[in-house]
Each structure stands twice: as C-alpha cells, then as structure tokens.
Amino acid sequence: MSSQHTRPAQQKDQQPNSSVSDSMRFAFLIENIASQKDRDAFAELFAHFAPRVKGYLMRLGASNGQAEEVTQDAMLSVWRKAHLFDRKKASASTWIFTIARNRRIDVLRQQKYPELDANDPSLVPDSPAQPDDEVIAERRGEMVRAALGKLPEEQRELVRLAFYNGWSHGQLAAETNLPLGTVKSRLRLAFGRLRQELGDDI
C-alpha cells in the first residue's frame, strides 16, 4: 500500500479497526480511477483484488485458464466502470464482487446477467434516505465481517456455501451429506445471528 499520492483516507488510519480504513482506501482508489484515470490506484486495487477474484472463480469450479480470463476481464471492467461506483451504495469489495459475478456469467455462459437499471422509468425508488444511511453503507461491510466472525465454523462454512457459492438447500444437503433439516436449521441459526448483529432484514 505504498504510493506517492495524497491520501485523505490515511488521516483516518487512527481508527481502531483497520479493515474499515482498508475499505475506505479501496473506495478512494476507485474514485481516483474515475476522476483522474489513476493507474497507480488501479495497480494497487489489482494487487489486492485480482488474486481474490481468481480464488473466487476457482472455488466456483473455473479452471485456471478460465479464472485468469475472467479475472482480467473483471479487472478491466473495474477500470472502465469506476465512474459508476458509489460508496454510499456499496463497499469496494461488494462492488467488485458483483462485477466478477456478472463477468463470470457473461463469459462462461455467454449471456448477459440480468440486472436492474438505475435509469429504468419503472424503478420504484427507495423511501427517503435516513440521515445515517451513508454511515450504514460505509460500515455495513465491517459489521457483516464482524458478525460472520462470531459464527461457529460449521455455520460459517454453510453460510459460505449458501451465499458465496449460491447453493440451494437441496444442493447443500447433497454435497455436505447432512440431512436437509439440519442444513435448514443451521442456516436459520446462522441467519438469526447475523440478523441480530446487523439489526436488519438481511
């Protein structure tokens, strides 16, 4: 994380939680790409996210070659779509996750992933923003991370398989050799705890 840029994000490095400032740093880098085509910012984002995106793709069964191709493609999209990033809506890692997810489907299935369009006249708008919405968006990732960390490993792994791999209850039961009822009750427990931590309708 060394670079000669001025770093407004660093002024907040005194915060006790380093992953919050990491997350702000990544958001700042994406914004710099958008505003000034900052190549160093891109290289720094690449160093952190490209290997993680590749790991994600391989976890979902991509070969090394496919994972390389989609990772490169996704990172190029990060550069090209940086102007669409809005830190009030999503953290940097969430935004990059959705890009990688969509590129994976676009490339491997040769089909555009259906997405909502923010300019769609039929879009039903959010209810007026609460004053602390911004804070919530900024910190949401951190809250989720903390909540996940508190789950017992058996629940955490199920959450990973259910959310990250996108397995249905039936698939989870088949792949883990757990009875369907056990899968459902463990996930419900995990979910209940996450909801408790996040105080939201996740």
């Binding site: 995106v53 990772t71 490169q72 969430t94 996750f97 990732g141 996040l198």
Partner: peptide, 27 residues
C-alpha cells in the same frame, strides 16, 4: 444489497490465488 455485501466480505476474506505475472502488464 445486504446479501451482496455479505458476498463482498467473503470475497475480501477469500483465499487469494496468484495470478499470472503478465496479467497486470497486459491490462
């Protein structure tokens, strides 16, 4: 959005897999 942010966290915590040293240059 909540579910996607959970996936964002999982991505950030995922085991990194080294990419080809050429990739950044190509990009």
């Amino acid at each position: 959005e909540e579910l996607e942010s959970l996936n964002g966290v999982l991505l950030n915590e995922a085991e990194p897999v080294a990419v080809s040293p050429m990739m950044l240059e190509d990009l």
